[in-house]
Every structure is written in C-alpha cells, then in structure tokens.
Simulated assay, not measured.
Amino acid sequence: MRIGELSARTATSRRLLRYYEEQGLLVSTRCPNGYRDYDESYVDRVLQIRGLLDAGLPTRIIKQILPCLDKPRSIHFPDATPEMIAALEHERDRMTDRVRCLTRNRDAIAEYLDAVLEHNRAEVQP
C-alpha cells in the first residue's frame, strides 16, 4: 500500500511515517515511479510503534524490541547493554504503574457512570 493509505488507516501523518522509516522502524520498497510501498502488516506495526511511543519508549529502544512483537518471534539482542536492560526494566515498571493507575481510574469512572445511570433510571420511573 502507498504511504497515503497507511497514513489514513493508522491515523498517522505521512511525515511521521517517513520519520519512522528514517529511524529504521519501518522499511518500504519503492515502486518504479518512486512511490513508497508498504506491506499490509505495517498497519499493525505502526499502531504498535505509536503505542510504544505513547508509553514513553524512545525510538532507539523500540527498534530493538520490534522483532519481539513479530510472529514468529525472532529476538535479536546484539546491543543489550546493562544500561539498555536497566532502561527496559524501568520502562516496564513504569508501564505497569500506569496500567494500575488507568485501571483504577477506569473502575472509578465505571462506578460513577453506574451510579448516574441508576439515578437517572430511578427519576424516570413513576
């Protein structure tokens, strides 16, 4: 698919997709007319990249862990320095804390919404 379609399907700007390619997170082939062509699997890949970036991971770490997200999994770790391992552990722990916080907030919103809906139902009934 061309960059415009990938952009539309992932709600990611073309400029950002080109940046991901510059960073080695995506690889396109070139059509004879010079247009970029992306594999269908890159829809999920871009969404994964965006999720990891939203979680606070830098592109250099994302580039290293992307192979772990593929199936079949092919894990490469030539640059797994102690610093990188520590950074990944820190990011994992930070994500775990964020998941806990999001879960707590989701549950609070659900509880509030249930109470509001119940209250509204009680007001409507005679």
Rank of each mutant, 00 (worst) to 15 (best):
P58R: 09
A115N: 07
L102G: 06
L57F: 11
E89H: 11
T103I: 03
D70E: 14
S74L: 13
V46H: 05
E89Y: 04
Q48V: 08
V116F: 01
A108Q: 12
Q64G: 06
A86M: 08
R106Y: 10
A108L: 12
A80D: 09
Y112I: 13
D39M: 05
P67H: 12
V116W: 00
P78L: 02
P82I: 06
A122W: 09
R98S: 03
A110G: 11
H119Y: 14
I49D: 01
L52D: 02
L88I: 07
I61F: 07
T96D: 12
I61D: 07
N105Y: 09
I75Y: 10
L66I: 06
A110H: 13
R73A: 15
L69R: 07
V46T: 06
G56E: 08
V46R: 01
A80W: 09
R50P: 04
D114I: 03
F77P: 07
V116Q: 01
P78S: 00
S41G: 06
R104V: 06
R121L: 02
A115I: 06
A55F: 05
T81R: 02
M84K: 14
E91K: 00
R45H: 04
P78C: 02
L47K: 14
L57R: 04
I75N: 09
T103V: 02
E111K: 09
L113A: 09
P82A: 08
R121A: 06
L117F: 15
R106N: 07
R106F: 07
K71M: 13
E91R: 01
D79L: 11
D39E: 13
R50F: 01
A86C: 04
R98M: 04
R92H: 07
G51C: 07
E91I: 00
A55E: 01
I109F: 02
A87M: 08
Q48W: 07
A86G: 10
D114C: 03
A55L: 11
G56C: 10
V116R: 03
A122M: 07
H119N: 10
V99C: 14
A87R: 05
V99R: 14
V116L: 03
K63Y: 11
L69H: 08
K63A: 15
L47Q: 15
A80L: 13
P82V: 06
D114T: 12
R104A: 15
R100L: 08
D39P: 05
N105D: 15
A110S: 13
I62F: 03
E118A: 15
V46P: 00
N105S: 13
C68L: 15
N105H: 11
A115Q: 11
G56L: 08
R92T: 13
Y42I: 01
R121V: 03
R50G: 04
H90M: 02
C101Q: 14
